[in-house]
Design a protein around this nucleic acid. Structure first.
Lengths: 103, 103
DNA sequence: ATCGTAGTATGATGGTTATCGTACAAGTAA
DNA sequence: TTACTTGTACGATAACCATCATACTACGAT
């Protein structure tokens, strides 16, 4: 069956403040982050019930992943999404908490 | 001589996280914020030596002011710019510090 | 093998943004 | 008044971004 499909994630050093702030500046993406922070981690994209089309949803999850805000890995036909809390706190201390508290 | 020209500033309650994060997501605007935080307040726009035209500079200062990040008031032919540290800390606790530390 | 589910790729569209140049306004100083 | 300084208004342009629909892939279940 070969290796599972994989997705690119930036290391903490590779994360840019530009990308993280731009990612968090979108309200739809902040609802994703807030849900991951509030409920448990590892939720499939479909569990978010976003008020946009599937392709738009894909777009927003990718922006978050490429910025380093969330992790994504395949699990069957789904993708499990997780908040990269520790990595974010390491790279940009206090930022995630401030944004979550302000939301 | 009539009242001095004045500029609109949002109250802390009127500040939106969307607008603040979008404003801070631009690197040029973060250099403005960092300079205001590092050096003294009340610096004229021209004191920032931004690598863009005058009209682009005006645009960025306006984005920061309309988001609530900076204050601007006329002083002769200049505008004195100040960082709205207290208002930001009131409305979005920890956010400004996190962004400044990460910059 | 067939079907259904979860998400992606691609291309289009409309809106927003960063940038500039030019012309202008308001204030200060000569 | 005239000239200079500082910033604004306006219009143009190019890049970017959020959104969608359609067609597609990968996996799991029947």
């Amino acid at each position: 069956m070969g290796p599972a499909r994989s997705l690119e994630h930036p290391t903490p050093e590779q994360m840019s403040l530009d990308a993280v702030l731009s990612a968090l500046a979108d309200p739809l993406r902040r609802t994703i982050v807030a849900q991951l922070a509030g409920d448990h981690d590892d939720q499939a994209c479909i569990a978010f019930a976003l008020p946009v089309s599937k392709s738009t949803s894909t777009h927003h999850f990718r922006v978050l992943r490429e910025a380093g805000v969330i992790s994504q890995h395949y699990r069957g036909t789904s993708i499990l999404n997780g908040l990269r809390t520790e990595d974010l706190n390491l790279r940009f201390p206090g930022l995630l908490d401030a944004v979550l508290a302000a939301n």
